[in-house]
Design a protein around this nucleic acid. Structure first.
Lengths: 242, 242
DNA sequence: TTATGTGAACGCATTCACAGCC
DNA sequence: GGCTGTGAATGCGTTCACATAA
């Protein structure tokens, strides 16, 4: 079920270099290849969008889909769709399009959704609560292991069915339960300190909801969702396009 | 207090064309100019980051700041900072740097934060609640007018001090209270329909938290915050950089 | 004929490097 | 000397256009 793509690691070219040579397809052409060059965030985001449509199509029992259709619904162009996919291999049949179930499987594999990911939520406030009950999480294979807080009134209670633990236990728990992802739903002023703790604890991916620019040190990926910033993009548009 | 920059409207060049000629500065060089060319989202986001630092510096009573310092804390380069600002005018003094209070005022003006923005939250669930109590909103001059829901059990109750109203009243209320921004905190399946209602009601800016690609029609700006997608960027990184 | 896969062209955002002013 | 402001150079993501395959 989970193919061991890790074994192919270490192939990673920094510079421009030879195009992907498409591996002569021994048994199945539509197996995602590990990309040869760094993939842009924007590409990954679009793959995620495509997958959502494919799952919709799958439910409706559609067998194939063209890059054109995928593009129309995803707000991109057909060339964009094909280029995005081409970084990972050849998944379509010329003249026909893409097999819906095959392409969804490939995309799930590319995006790393073929396994369960363990998530710890740090901060048991309103945002933490909203995240804890968020359906999209479980649907995508994310398992929320626990929530953490420093407030004694909250510790020991439940947050949407998830145990709220003392933040002082955090490092010990990580060592035992080795979650892959931490979600920061804490006040701005604490965010950098907590990120440092999370980093030292050995977690490799963080989703941050505090409205600060965090500085990551070492081998960790941090994504920040900044609602205030998005709102300011809106007010900028309102004042400058009106 | 709120300068009427709208009167300068109608100057907007689509193509490449003449660089900003810097207006010979009658009385004060550091007044933001309406940009001549379309500004990238990424630039606006960074301005928002710079402003946050400037406000921090302001609290600590610092008088001036260099593009270098601003860059270091914002995770950019000094050239980037200067280029971002240059789209709107000249705010610094060569050899000295930028006046902290003057630059913050200018940035607030550029980002459209010099006025109160009225926001309606649609959807009184967990995400709606988290947003309703979110401090960053009020601090930035956003006023939440009301929340809307279709669930009779919720209508009439309060959400973090904000009235939950019947969604059927929405169009009438918009006509009376003319909010500028709508926040969509509703299930995926309802999002497009509600966006269409919001558009027809005449609102010009939407922040969407439903994990769908929405299709905007007409003169409206839509920003989507998609947590699932951000998480998938993380799992992609985890599976492909491991 | 239809639709993919992909080098090449394009356009835009970032970075460089230096002239200009404090 | 120090730091800004900005054309020019670079790099990178997107779009084009067509060879390729069903």
């Amino acid at each position: 079920m989970f193919m061991r793509r890790k074994t192919l690691a270490s192939v990673r070219r920094g510079s421009a270099g030879a195009r992907q040579t498409n591996a002569l397809a021994c048994e199945s052409i539509h197996k995602p290849t590990r990309p040869l060059k760094r993939i842009a965030d924007s590409t990954v985001r679009r793959l995620s969008i495509y997958l959502r449509f494919l799952e919709e199509f799958e439910e409706h029992g559609l067998a194939t889909v063209s890059s054109e259709e995928l593009a129309r619904r995803g707000g991109a162009t057909s060339a964009q769709v094909r280029k995005d996919l081409s970084f990972f291999g050849s998944f379509g049949k010329r003249g026909l399009g893409y097999s819906v179930p095959e392409l969804s499987t490939s995309l799930r594999d590319i995006l790393g959704l073929g396994k369960e990911w363990r998530v710890m939520i740090i901060g048991a406030g309103k945002i933490g609560a909203a995240l804890a009950q968020y359906r999209g999480f479980r649907q995508r294979g994310f398992v929320i292991v626990a929530a953490y807080d420093t407030n004694p009134d909250k510790i020991g209670r439940m947050l949407e069915g998830i145990e709220i633990r003392d933040m002082r236990r955090f490092e010990d728990d990580v060592a035992k339960e080795h979650p892959e992802i931490a979600v920061l739903a804490i006040p701005t002023d604490d965010a950098q300190v907590v990120l440092d703790r999370v980093t030292r604890a050995g977690i490799k991916a963080v989703l941050n909801f505090a409205p600060v620019q965090l500085h990551a040190s070492g081998d960790i990926t941090v994504k920040t969702v900044n609602m205030a910033m998005e709102l300011e993009v809106l007010t900028f548009a309102l004042t400058n396009n009106g």
